[in-house]
Amino acid sequence: MQVDEATVQRIAGLARIKVTPEEAKALQTELSGILNWVEQLDEVDTSAVEPMTRVVPIALPKRKDEVTDGEIPDQVTKNAPQTEDHFFVVPKVIE
């Protein structure tokens, strides 16, 4: 799989990472190299194989549907870059 610059920019957009044109060039080569290398998996016949969903065969435990913590807005917002009255502040989203 040869990744072109437009694909790198499209993926970077999906990943929400700004990539400069120079970085995109380098990434083109690196990503293509890695993707070409993983393509050796095509040699393996997996037509009758189930994908792995968990390595240890245990059932997902359930707990009671009840509140076990909360009332800690100071802690929740303590590390935020910008807060106001226990709200996270972000740039305006709606015009």
């Binding site: 957009g13 990943a15 929400r16 990472i17 700004k18 990539v19 910008q82 972000v90 305006k92 989203v93």
Partner: peptide
């Protein structure tokens, strides 16, 4: 938004992209 580094951008998407870069 919730913790760590924030790099301002021209809108919220741009802020995400600049921060993560």
């Amino acid at each position: 938004v919730r913790y760590g580094l924030r790099v301002p951008g021209k809108d919220i998407i741009d802020m995400y992209c600049e921060t993560r870069a």
